[in-house]
């Protein structure tokens, strides 16, 4: 349609600086509004770390080495996933003020939120590196694979966010269902359970739960300094592309009517 093309043009030339502006503001709103500031970003994973550590190391006495760091690495990937999927279910509603009257592309709104969450992740990642250094674990060359894994995770979360938020337009209680599904995914991820235990006991887990691959390959390159399992990397990219593809279709079908439906 002619009108959309014209409006796309209006906002295209300053697109990236606008996405960055929105991401910065969102990040600031999230973490700088209260006295503790960025420490909040850290407090949540640290609390989870404490709980899982007590449950799985002190009570259940598992034998994973450097368990605290193992946990923290898993938790921060998981937290990024939760923030960018469940956290964005309402995005078309909360950010309606952006697209309703200016026809700004909705993709930009998603990207801004994902980038904002990535900044939070970067901060946690920095803390993880500190933990590794304190724990006497050497960082190695295999860190160069990290961007590959993160890009894949980013695309995957983007896709899931698109799917959930556009389904929300039609099915409002996806808000209630998604936490249940993500609980399921969490318990089937190697966040506190060991990679081998999951892999050996649940067939096809790497296909069924995308987080399985993301968390374990992330740990491989950051914590263990080994090459990631490229089959897993590939499977994860497939997950990411499929999610994004489905998400974009839903955006086309439902999303274009978002301002009427909400």
């Amino acid at each position: 349609m002619g009108s959309n093309a014209a409006n796309a043009q209006l906002t295209k030339k300053n697109r990236w600086e606008r996405i960055w502006l929105l991401a910065k503001i969102e990040f600031k709103l999230r973490y700088y509004e209260n006295r503790l500031g960025l420490l909040w970003a850290l407090l949540k994973p640290l609390m989870q770390l404490a709980i899982y550590f007590i449950a799985f190391k002190i009570v259940m006495r598992n034998n994973i080495e450097n368990f605290a760091i193992y946990l923290f690495a898993g938790i921060i990937v998981w937290q990024f996933f939760v923030e960018t999927t469940g956290g964005l279910i309402n995005i078309l509603k909360t950010k309606k003020y952006l697209y309703e009257y200016s026809n700004m592309s909705k993709i930009e709104i998603y990207l801004a939120s994902l980038i904002s969450a990535s900044l939070g992740f970067a901060f946690n990642f920095f803390i993880l590196i500190l933990f590794l250094i304190i724990g006497g674990i050497d960082l190695g060359w295999n860190l160069i694979y990290f961007p590959l894994i993160f890009i894949s995770l980013f695309i995957f979360c983007f896709g899931v966010a698109l799917i959930l938020s556009n389904l929300y337009l039609k099915v409002k209680d996806i808000n209630q269902f998604w936490p249940l599904i993500s609980q399921f995914l969490m318990w089937l991820s190697p966040i506190f359970l060991s990679f081998e235990a999951l892999k050996n006991n649940i067939p096809y887990i790497s296909y069924l739960n995308p987080l399985f691959g993301y968390i374990s390959t992330f740990r491989d390159v950051v914590m263990y300094n080994i090459k990631p399992d490229f089959t897993l990397v590939l499977i994860n990219f497939a997950h990411a592309i499929i999610a994004l593809f489905l998400g974009l279709i839903l955006l086309r079908v439902f999303g274009k009517r978002a301002s009427e439906l909400l």
């Binding site: 349609m1 002619g2 009108s3 014209a6 409006n7 209006l10 026809n103 274009k256 009517r257 301002s259």
Partner: peptide, 18 residues
Amino acid sequence: SGTFIPDRGGQVIKNGTS
């Protein structure tokens, strides 16, 4: 302005940004 989409069969042509 393009915020709403017309029913099937209708057409909106717009020259320029709005």
